[in-house]
Computed example of a mutant assay.
Amino acid sequence: MKAESVVQRRLLELAEVDAELSRVDHKRRTLPELAEIDAAEKTLRERKDALVSVQMQHSDLDREVARQEREIESVRARADKDRKLMESGSVAAKQLTELEHELATIGRRQSALEDDLLELMEQREALELDAQRTGAEVDKAEQVLAEAASRRDEALADLDTTQARREGDRAALLPQFPEDLVKLYERVRAQKNIGAALLQSRRCGACRLEMDRNTVAEIKAAPVNEVLTCDNCGAILVRTAESGL
């Protein structure tokens, strides 16, 4: 394949544009903010799960407190009924003794229920504090996630700007090359990620390997308009005064 030396040298401009586009793509995939977002999302899920767990426990305690209060109210109503019956003076001495015994039993039952209720109320109060703390942790995790997402969006916007600019440069460069040269360049770039490189001090600028004497001699003997490629990596070798030939 033939191409004027000036055209071949212009391939280095195209290669630099493509190298920057590759760097942009790599940065887009490896932004530190992406890892931060993953970690923040995991933390947020954990905090939300913890909050749901506390809320469920609180809901269970609310039901238990309500049940306990109903039972205490039932016991109180029974005690009031017995007292009114005793105060009515319409019961016999034996029934009065039985009512007094029942009232004593009810009193002990009421005291035990009230003690249990107090313990449940203390547990609920502790859970309310836990829910407040966990809710604050959820808010903090959401803020951390939002800040990481904002930084990611800013970084992506910068990369989008660079990519758009360099893609414009690329579109302007491509028409300056023969079609067969572009096809060779693109084929090599697709395989090795570098389509063309400067031959500098007898080293390929793509794979950085130094060429042996025979190869250097062949390159020296080749016409300046001959398109040469690296035997090692396949990149198009662009010859200039820096090539050391």
Rank of each mutant, 00 (worst) to 15 (best):
R133V: 10
L117D: 06
D130H: 07
L118S: 01
L96R: 15
L129A: 09
E114K: 03
A112V: 00
D116N: 02
E125H: 00
Q123G: 01
T134D: 08
E102S: 15
E100K: 15
L117H: 05
L96S: 11
R109T: 09
Q132V: 10
T105E: 12
E100P: 05
L118A: 07
L117F: 04
G107Q: 13
L103P: 01
Q123T: 01
R108G: 08
H101K: 14
E98M: 12
G107W: 11
D116K: 08
L117A: 03
L120P: 01
K94D: 15
L120D: 02
E122N: 06
G135V: 08
T134K: 12
A126Q: 05
L129I: 07
E100T: 10
L118Q: 01
G107K: 13
T134L: 08
Q95V: 15
A112K: 00
D130V: 03
L99G: 05
L117Q: 03
E122C: 03
Q95C: 08
E114D: 02
T134S: 11
T97S: 12
S111D: 02
E125C: 04
Q95M: 13
I106V: 09
E122L: 08
I106A: 13
A104L: 12
G135Q: 10
Q110R: 09
T97P: 01
L120T: 01
Q123H: 05
D116S: 03
R133W: 07
L117V: 01
T105A: 14
L99E: 05
E100A: 11
E98H: 10
I106W: 07
I106K: 12
Q95L: 14
D130S: 10
L127V: 04
E125I: 02
R124S: 11
T134I: 12
E100V: 10
L118P: 05
